[in-house]
């Protein structure tokens, strides 16, 4: 599997302390800053794509990975949650803002020998 792109994103849940919601927003942020147009232009199959998602939050055990995986529209998604992200505490109210980081890697079994630059 060759990695085609690494997409980066950040998402938050400002007042709900919902780590899954923050993670889903981070994934959406990562996804919607780019489009892999080569699937259309080179007529490749989306289903063959493997999507590795890594989520970073301060409390990994509070992320529902299956819900995050459902955010991925195409390909076979694998979600890993690690300690990361950021929590920002308001000392006056005690409220915690949860920030999640997301890295989405799109991989495909692509053989470079199948392709060449057009002769100029």
């Amino acid at each position: 599997m060759t990695r085609l792109i690494l997409e980066l994103g950040a998402g938050n849940d400002l007042y709900g302390e919902d780590y899954t919601k923050a993670a889903c927003r981070a994934v959406q942020d990562a996804l919607h800053h780019s489009s892999l147009t080569l699937f259309r232009t080179l007529n490749l199959a989306h289903g063959d794509m493997q999507v590795n998602v890594t989520i970073g939050v301060q409390h990994p055990e509070r992320v529902d990975a299956a819900v995050v995986a459902a955010e991925l529209p195409r390909g076979k998604a694998i979600v890993t949650v690690v300690h990361g992200g950021q929590n920002v505490t308001d000392p006056d109210s005690g409220s915690v803002s949860v920030i999640a980081s997301a890295a989405v890697e799109a991989c495909l079994d692509l053989n470079p020998n199948d392709w060449q630059l057009s002769p100029t």
Partner: peptide
């Protein structure tokens, strides 16, 4: 910069092309 630094493209490597192409 927002567009470029939200992603890391490795298409050139994947196809075996030079980045300059």
């Amino acid at each position: 910069k927002d567009a470029l630094w939200h992603n890391s493209l490795s298409m050139a490597e994947a196809f075996g092309f030079a980045k300059e192409a």
